[in-house]
């Protein structure tokens, strides 16, 4: 097992390097530079700026320099936010995004799994239909509709929750600020997880080894939680990798609607501004999170399924 983990960890390194390289070059070959939008620069000023950001060097050298900096943990200066470097900007906003994302994921998992199992066990009853209708809704209503609607209903009309703000910022309001963004972000993933849990639970309950367990005289609850649970959770676990990726992008919308100072806002703005270092920095950070999440998912999967061999 340890060997397997180490091997998978080492396997992550080339992936991350390739991701850095790819995003660096995609951004660099793009037409238009970060300073295009501003007033026309004199030749001297332009040279000066280019020298400061090493634009005057050949691309390969820029790449090597950037790679070296990144490996030291320095993502470089931001071109647009001149007072701060990328590390500072990301470091300030990333925790907000991560907290939001993890809360949404946790909510989606708790509700998705529990309601999915109930639906499977109580098939064709109200306990099946209601959560599944909700899930069908969650699949079809885009996040950018859910978020404003929740805001409209629960903050503007009912005044239950504040419209904007974020509890982690100073003076950002209490825990209530976290409720609506979390629900909005988790909705679609609740839908997927509940449907997945239900169908895989149903399938597991039909399997031969569950019949064996019944023939042994096991109680229904024991059968579900001890015998069926592990097998039924496998598809859910492998879904979690892509789900994390989705939540990362989804949080862009939620952050925008609820004005949460997260990474998503920087990402969209920096791509409009062609703020190269910031874009690449955000992509690298997102990718690393994603790669780590996929790694964790793999390990959990291997833990759950004894048939996986650690080669």
């Amino acid at each position: 097992m340890t060997k397997y983990i180490i091997k998978r960890l080492l396997g992550m390194i080339p992936t991350i390097l390739i991701i850095i390289t790819l995003s660096f070059f995609i951004v660099r070959i793009a037409p238009g530079g970060p300073f295009d939008g501003e007033r026309v620069l004199t030749e001297a000023v332009r040279r000066n700026i280019e020298a400061r950001y090493h634009f005057d060097e050949p691309l390969v050298k820029q790449y090597a320099r950037y790679m070296f900096d990144v490996l030291r943990g320095d993502l470089g200066p931001s071109y647009k936010y001149k007072d701060h470097d990328v590390n500072y900007l990301i470091g300030n906003s990333l925790p907000n995004s991560i907290v939001l994302g993890s809360m949404a994921m946790a909510v989606a998992l708790v509700f998705g799994i529990s309601l999915g199992i109930t639906a499977a066990v109580k098939q064709n009853t109200i306990l099946d239909y209601f959560p599944m209708c909700l899930a069908a809704l969650g699949l079809s209503v885009p996040l950018f509709v859910v978020a404003p609607l929740l805001q409209q209903i629960f903050s503007m009309q009912l005044h239950w929750f504040p419209t904007t703000g974020w509890f982690m910022t100073t003076g950002g309001g209490g825990w209530k600020t976290a409720v609506l963004p979390t629900i909005a972000l988790s909705f679609a993933y609740y839908a997927d997880i509940a449907r997945l849990t239900r169908s895989s639970m149903l399938e597991t309950l039909r399997s031969d080894y569950i019949r064996t367990a019944k023939a042994k005289g096991m109680k229904n609850s024991t059968i579900i939680f001890k015998h069926a649970m592990k097998g039924a959770m496998l598809p859910v676990v492998s879904y979690l990798g892509p789900a994390f990726a989705g939540i990362l992008t989804g949080s862009i919308v939620v952050e925008q609607v609820f004005t949460i100072p997260g990474l998503g806002k920087f990402f969209v703005q920096s791509s409009f501004n062609r703020d190269y270092t910031l874009i690449v920095g955000v992509v690298i950070v997102y990718s690393i999170i994603l790669v780590i999440m996929n790694f964790i998912v793999d390990i959990v999967y291997a833990q759950l399924d004894p048939r996986i061999t650690y080669k």
């Binding site: 399997s207 031969d208 080894y209 019949r211 064996t212 367990a213 001890k226 015998h227 592990k230 097998g231 759950l304 399924d305 004894p306 048939r307």
Partner: peptide, 8 residues
């Protein structure tokens, strides 16, 4: 092959 629980 399928009658024993593969996860336990």
């Amino acid at each position: 092959m399928t009658s024993l629980n593969p996860f336990l």
